[in-house]
Design a protein around this nucleic acid. Sequence first.
DNA 1: ATGGGGCTGCTTTTT
DNA 2: GCAGCCCCAT
Length: 795
Amino acid sequence: MTNLEQRYLSAKRALFERYYGAFLNPEQCRAVLTVSGPLLILAGAGSGKTTVLVNRICHIIKYGTAYESKQVPDDLSEALVAEREGAVHAPLSKEELESLLNEYIARPCPPWAMLAITFTNKAAREIKERLRVALDNEELSEEIWAGTFHSICVRILRRYGERVGIAPSFSIYDTSDTKHLITEVMRELNIDDKILPIRSVTSAISAAKNELISPEVYESTAGDLRKRQIARIYKEYAERLLKYNAVDFDDIIMKTVMLLEENPDVAEYYQNKFSYVCVDEYQDTNPAQFKLTYLLSAKNRNIMVVGDDDQSIYRFRGATVENILQFDKVYTDAAVIKLEQNYRSTSNILDAANAVIANNEMRHGKTLRTEKAEGEKITLYRAENEDGEARFIVDTILHRRIEERRPYRDFAVLYRVNAISRSLETAFAKSGVPYRLLGGTRFYDRKEVKDILAYLFLLQNTGDDQRLRRIVNEPKRKLGDKTMDTVAALAEETGGSMFDVMLYANAFPPLAKVADKLLAFAGLITDLQKDAETVKPSELIPLVMEKTGYLAMLKAGGKAMEDDIDNLNELVSAAVAYEEKTLEPTLPGFLEEAVLVSDVDKYDEEADAVVLMTVHSAKGLEFPVVFLAGAEEGIFPGSQSINNPEELPEERRLAYVAITRAKEKLYATYTAQRLLYGQTQRFRVSRFFGEEIPQGLLERNERRPSPPPRATVPSARPSALSGEFARRASVSTQSAPRRAAFEHMAVGDRVLHSTFGEGEVLSVRSLGADELYEIAFDSGEKKKLMATYAKLKKL
DNA sequence: ATGGGGCTGCTTTTT
DNA sequence: GCAGCCCCAT
């Protein structure tokens, strides 16, 4: 290569670096400009991961391999090179620079040859949206294959699924459908769920699928009785799914991998189609997903994965952090780029996060840095019980909101387990602070919604016996288990589906008595199928509600069913929304979305309210002020993980995720005793927050004499505390402002209450300095009352 | 076939 | 503390 050529190439690179350097840091630039071959990007929390991902995709679509290419023009002249070298430092507008870069375009990637895989719909949506903006071209961005693992695999299966025995109209089973089917299978195989709990069976089968272990292989390696039984269940379960033309969540990935492995022509088609494969949140991939991305990128080997091994928190769902830890061992020629510059948190928060995670071994090892100021210290707050904890959080929010003029949406309360949210929710409700509680029952998990969806799935795929059984007697049609068992047996004999048997019910003597009811039902479904051919999902849903009598059933239920009706109306709205945003809305398309969507997707920072959620759901989000409630040994880390060296590191990663959600201020709160799962337990502070965070970064509220013995009036408030802190603590701790001395009651005492009248004490529970009485009043009412407030009189 | 009343057991949950 | 499930009585 001549000197002139080298100067040409280095000017070219300098121009690209200048372009991206205007808004990216050097590591981010390198990540965007590393286009060919395997690439691992280790992106710390808040390091601009999505920005890099989006810019890299955009860059490849626009410029292809321009930056790396060694191509030089045939007619390279000194004048051209000098001009370009001059441009590197010349004052140029963005547009001028872009038009210069256009000169270097080399093998740009067509959008349909770009595959970007995420885990959540929310992430997929965000990427698509940002690509649309960055490319400034709606049509182009629409053609990019950006979606979740599941949606992309569904797309592939709809097209080629028949090669692995899945017809295009297949149903998708969610976790609860799966559980029901496995329960049924176990009943049939006479396996007692007391000996082999369903939970352990579903998770074993799920784990097997995540590891691409087929029923046959599972069976052949099953040693002990337990495993042999699971093997039997797995085998039967898989056969049922095949028969019903249904797939569960894990199948969606596993069957796609099988499809690609067993059909070289299909594999080749996709390998040729996709020039580039990008995978987000790589630390959460399982072996099946690893294989999938491996296969899809096998030809060009242009596979880029982004993730953070320190944020791998889904081991329990089959994710193996080894995928990201071993990436550069599997792809030995992989480039590795670490993004360690954090743009989110103050340095105190980052130092805390770095210190906690440093206790883990087996990491790629990153240390986040920031240019932000130290910021406030982390507050570690000890409350006497869960009510004190909740009050502290609510009071602090009220206080900071006024003092710092913050909207409610600046605050998030996180916790390890949903059970913690109860006391918090009560406190928020009482205080009038607007809040949103994420988690709990998902919209699509509500019974009435699942029922209507089951009807819709059945219309699409009448072979789905499972869904048929779900709704055949909903509303009541006098078609109970007995009848349906007979139908199932006949279906088994004839080799058809239960629906087929119902269609010809009068041809089966055993069904003589119920034939008319069965035929009526089959007629109803056939009728609705005709409707389904002509109307949109949003119009079909009301028809289903009407014609099946489901709506009538709910209306008959009166007030209690009003919520159900509201939810179904919301389902119609969801269908309308789907139709609006989809080019070619279809029933299968809507159903797919309904099953593959979660409630967290709906959390779009709309309302001005404090948000309450688990640490798991908070991954990927950020808030100015974060409270971590329940920072206790036994809760976080959970009691199951405390003595389990396999699980403790994951708990620590979870703590790392929690800490790094905070931008400006982090509170960790814990209680001395907490009412959890119906009983009060004593707790110590979590090691992560009490020990592993350097003490210098912490501000504690507990440097005061131990609380006074129960039921004595505290004489003076001790104050080894800083002024500000004492003020805040005094309005909010469990030691309520006014603690009236109360009369102690014992079980069996007769008491008098000013409004409830006379009664008998059933139980006494001490809660910090207070006592909780359960009292059976003579009126027949049972009440639980706090001693301080109940003002009881002993009779 | 249906509905109600007692028992259990319990992380986390992108799809 | 409560949801979900099983069993039993109608």
